[in-house]
Amino acid sequence: MSTLTVTAKGQVTLRKDLLEHLGVHPGEKISVDKLPDGRIEVKAARPTGKISDLFGSLKAKRKGRSLSIEEMNEIIARGWAGKR
């Protein structure tokens, strides 16, 4: 069991070994659940959405007709060649 210190601001810092155990990296989120008897449960917060939730999310930002596969391939080829 680890012992952590609470700062004057009420903050607690988790040590590196605890973060590694949770599989959490800088910038990621941690969820905390309150349990009975003054206990808490700390878990890595994982996204709960599905990939299909993203389908069409950029559609509203694009104006005009859709590109054909040939047009996309041409744009990609120009990008690889350093041409814009």
Rank of each mutant, 00 (worst) to 15 (best):
A81P: 05
I30W: 02
M72V: 15
S52H: 11
G64M: 06
L18C: 01
A45W: 13
T13S: 11
S31E: 15
K43V: 00
Q11I: 04
I75F: 08
K63N: 11
R78H: 09
V6A: 05
H21F: 08
K50Y: 13
L14M: 14
E20P: 02
T3G: 08
A44G: 04
R46C: 00
T5I: 08
L18R: 05
K16S: 14
T3L: 10
D53N: 15
G23I: 05
K29Q: 12
H25S: 12
K59M: 07
A44T: 03
K34C: 04
P26L: 01
V24F: 03
T48I: 08
G49D: 09
K16Y: 06
Q11K: 11
T5S: 10
I75W: 01
G10R: 08
M72F: 08
T3R: 14
T48P: 01
L14N: 09
I75D: 05
L67N: 10
E28V: 01
S66G: 10
R39I: 00
H21N: 05
K9I: 00
E28T: 02
R15S: 06
K29P: 00
K63F: 06
T13G: 04
R46K: 15
T48A: 13
V32M: 09
R65L: 05
L19N: 12
E20G: 04
R84C: 04
S66Y: 01
K9H: 08
R39A: 09
R65T: 11
K63V: 10
A45S: 13
T3P: 00
L18Y: 08
I51P: 07
L22C: 01
L14E: 02
L14C: 07
V12G: 03
A8Y: 01
L58K: 10
I75T: 02
L18M: 13
H21Q: 12
E71K: 13
K43Q: 06
A60T: 11
K9F: 06
E74Q: 14
K43H: 06
V6Y: 01
W80K: 15
R46V: 14
S31Y: 02
K61D: 12
A60D: 14
R46Q: 14
K83R: 12
L22F: 02
V12I: 15
S31M: 11
V42W: 02
P26G: 04
D53P: 05
N73A: 11
I30K: 03
G79C: 07
V32A: 08
E41R: 15
Q11V: 06
V6P: 01
K50M: 09
F55D: 11
L58D: 15
F55H: 10
R15Y: 03
L14I: 07
D53V: 10
L67P: 04
T13R: 12
L67D: 10
